[in-house]
Nucleic acid binder design. Structure first.
Lengths: 403, 403
DNA sequence: GCTTTTTTCTCGACAGTCGAGAAAATAAAT
DNA sequence: ATTTATTTTCTCGACTGTCGAGAAAAAAGC
């Protein structure tokens, strides 16, 4: 449905455009902003004056220039304009970070999670306390925090605040909005971890300037994650994290820790590979956690040509390949990026992946998708967090306008 | 990426809003347009004056009113403002229709397709000749045609003009844009048939006013089609037709007529059901066309409790159910609408569908999706055609503006 | 014929963008 | 030291668009 538009919307949009240019390119002068945005110089004057008045951006005093004429004055976000909290929840640790409005990391600490205690309510209290600690350590007021961006593996509800299913808490729903709402007026954002990887990779690809249409990020590890970033018709980036790890592969894949049979994860997650390698009956309840050393041993065996370990990785690869082929059937063709701890076994998976891919019409028509292994998943997740949180904050600011 | 906006964009948007209100609600008066769109009365005056000047809309002379004050004058699209051609290509016939800018059907004829001749180039010539005939019969100039909307089963390229794969022409690519471009300046639109069903159903749902989030249409027949209609974040409707029928189901499903093994269609398409019912080896090259009478016989057998026919439908149902569950894993939960000739066997499929659905985490979390059988697929396809083509024409008109 | 009622049209105010040229601020030249 | 050239930033008037209020139009009732 279309909606009414007025000139104020135009201003909002163009203000957002200026802020995002500043976000992407760093400090810019009047003329550079005009170049980047395509707006007229006069318009830039009005918009920057307004943003400066509201305390969002400021002139930086450095007038570095060798040129001839009047020196440029650079605009940049006022970094003390507000703060962003980033929380990465993983199976073993929870990492709390504080960054300023400019995206500069100010503080960070981690807390170990006990493997056995998976009580969501208890975690909520620990979580709240940690946020308070983060504020105290940097002497920042709650009101100064503009966004709290949280990530976990698992399935996030469409509203972006509720964790519906996660490897850590299972089906215990975790509503971060409800948890924080009375006290915190910051924007609460919950994202799937691999979604953030996709977001970060998409941002990088756009930076490079090559015509970006879409990409898929797949994270291999104890669980299997998928993040999609696609450019919508309107030109905006659309990122999502479908429930790939627990998409049905084949019932032969056995019992998954989600309780269903035949998920991709039950074949390609670490515990699935382990189960196949040791010929454990496939309806055994899977281990909560597989030490990496254990996986390394199996991989070593497979590389030495042992039969069952090799078979286990191959089966895992086929499950992945089939899953990717199904995903490509339901979306457009796009390049695939593989991350996560499991990439260290990608040599063992690759053959199976290609075999699993080759079976479908989609791949026969379009050819094998481009598959790239990328390292440093944690860094990508954090970058994705910042990208997402800060652009949300930017749009909040432009929406608030002159109130 | 955001993009520059100016006041002209505002005008375009609001003009489009007026046109779409007129399209949805029929003839409207000045005040009614203001109500529908939320725009100020003064704005309506300017926009309608402009549209009237350009010949897109006109005042209808009927002043039906019992009320007291000044009678309302109704605005409506000038039906002779332009024309739209709709072509439905199915396996046995090709239907050509002509409608005016108001969406009123003016002329229609069908041409039988010979089953053997699947030559794409030859078809192109037949197609062109038929379009000419359509023009001649109604004495309309080529320039008066604003859009040619074509539909077929199969896979349509992202540009909306090339047929990449179809049950009729196989992998012979058919580029309608290239075929029509020199002579026709109309907008060329090629859509998957089931996409149009989804579009029509979504339009109906929006009309009803219930908060519409998304839906999936599945067409059962010789081949299996999927159309998705989802509301994007920006509020616009996003319809697509992923390659569902040839998504990998399980290699046990046997050889598909696309040449791959294990497609959903190879299990749930008519020929797949027939093959299973008669215990034909699953790598047999599938029949091009299965008479409906043949299918009816198998169904009758299944309803009488015969083993293999019952098994065949059940297998088909499971393939569908698994496919739907995978689709729901990769998108959000949404209601499912089933159409096509195959709906007459839905009683036989249903059990298997539910069984196939129940296996996945997604369904365990969200519950079984709502499944509705809807008849009159051909009507829905035509409605979808008109909806899509006319709104495209509307946006062309608003984009052209005062040139 | 006058009043009432409803609808449509018009006018001035306001918000936004744009292009052109003025003003500012520096480096190089004289 | 002063002038000139160059580059950047700012400002002004023109243009386009929406909006609210009230005027004008057109019919029904008295």
């Amino acid at each position: 449905m279309l909606t009414k538009t007025s000139t104020e919307v135009v201003r909002q949009q163009n203000t957002a455009l200026v802020l995002s240019a500043l976000r992407r390119k760093g400090a810019l002068s009047h003329t550079e902003i005009a170049e980047q945005t395509g707006l007229a110089s006069a318009t830039i004057s009005v918009i920057t004056a307004e943003l400066e008045r509201s305390g969002t951006i400021a002139k930086t005093e450095q007038h570095v220039q060798g040129g001839r004429g009047r020196p440029r004055v650079l605009f940049a976000q006022r970094r003390d304009c507000g703060y962003v909290i980033v929380v990465r929840i993983s199976s073993d640790i929870v990492q709390y970070s504080l960054a300023d409005y400019g995206g500069v990391l100010l503080d960070r600490f981690e807390e170990a999670r006990s493997h056995d205690a998976g009580d969501a309510a208890a975690f909520g209290q620990v979580f709240l306390a940690a946020l308070e600690r983060l504020l105290q350590r940097s002497r920042i007021e709650k009101e100064g925090v503009l966004a709290v961006s949280i990530s976990s593996k698992g399935l996030v509800a469409g509203d972006g605040a509720r964790l519906l299913w996660s490897p850590v808490f299972g089906r215990q729903e975790l509503d971060f909005s409800k948890l924080l709402r009375p006290d915190w007026r910051a924007r609460i954002m919950l994202s799937n971890e691999t979604l953030l990887v996709a977001q970060a990779l998409a941002a990088k690809a756009e930076e490079k300037g090559d015509a970006f249409k879409g990409l898929a990020a797949i994270s291999l590890g104890h669980s299997i994650g998928l993040g999609l970033a696609r450019r919508g018709r309107s030109g905006e980036l659309d990122v999502s994290a479908p429930n790939f790890g627990h998409m049905l592969h084949a019932s032969s894949a056995g019992l998954c820790r989600c309780g269903a049979y035949g998920c991709i994860e039950a074949a390609a997650g670490f515990y699935g590979i382990l189960r196949a390698a040791f010929e454990v009956p496939s309806d055994t309840i899977p281990a909560k956690f597989v030490p990496l050393a254990e996986m390394d041993k199996i991989a070593a065996g497979a590389r030495q040509g042992q039969r069952m370990p090799g078979y286990a990785f191959r089966q895992a690869g086929i499950a992945l390949g089939n899953g990717i082929s199904r995903m490509l059937s339901l979306y457009e063709p796009m390049p695939i990026y593989i991350t996560g701890q499991g990439t260290r076994y990608f040599d063992l998976l690759q053959k199976g992946v290609e075999e699993g891919l080759a079976q479908s019409l989609q791949v026969r028509l379009e050819g094998l998708p481009e598959i790239t292994v990328v390292g440093d998943e944690q860094r990508l997740v954090f970058d994705g967090h910042l990208d997402r949180a800060l652009s949300a904050v930017d749009s909040d600011i432009t929406a608030a306008g002159h109130s």
